[in-house]
């Protein structure tokens, strides 16, 4: 995957409401959410505090709580509410095109926690 770019994630029907999906074909991996209200969002999957997968976090409304230390990220902006994470994750543009979830990746530099390397070394 060349960045910036777009990612065809999966048919919307494959991601039930209230669930999330980690896409690790892109680097760093992203998390795609289908909210209870039917909206689709994409953010970087890795918490900025420690290497934890936000796709495994707790989805509530338009926010996801990190499963490890409970910092909560706004799915629309990537902003974080409270420590231990101090900076937000990148938010990507997610849309449904012909029944398929398509994510346009952010061009900002990712904000990864200490020790998480990009590329094959970190994977």
């Amino acid at each position: 995957m060349t960045q910036p770019g777009t990612v065809r994630v999966c048919p919307l029907a494959d991601l039930p409401r209230g669930e999330a999906l980690r896409v690790d074909e892109v680097d760093p991996p992203i998390a795609v959410f289908h909210t209870d209200d039917g909206e689709v969002f994409a953010i970087d999957d890795t918490c900025t505090h420690q290497d934890a997968s936000l796709s495994e976090g707790w989805l509530e409304g338009c926010a996801v709580e990190c499963p490890l230390h409970a910092s909560t990220f706004d799915l629309r902006t990537g902003e974080v509410d409270a420590p231990p994470a101090k900076v937000g994750v990148r938010a990507h543009r997610a849309e449904v095109v012909d029944g398929e979830i398509v994510v346009t990746l952010s061009t900002e530099p990712p904000r990864l926690p200490p020790g998480v390397l990009r590329g094959p070394v970190g994977r």
Binding site: R22, D24, P29, D45, T46, Q50, D51, A52, S53, E56, G57, P67, L68, G122, R123
Partner: peptide
């Protein structure tokens, strides 16, 4: 087990 530090690695 749903989460742990570095679990995705």
């Amino acid at each position: 087990l749903v989460a742990a530090p570095n679990l995705t690695r």
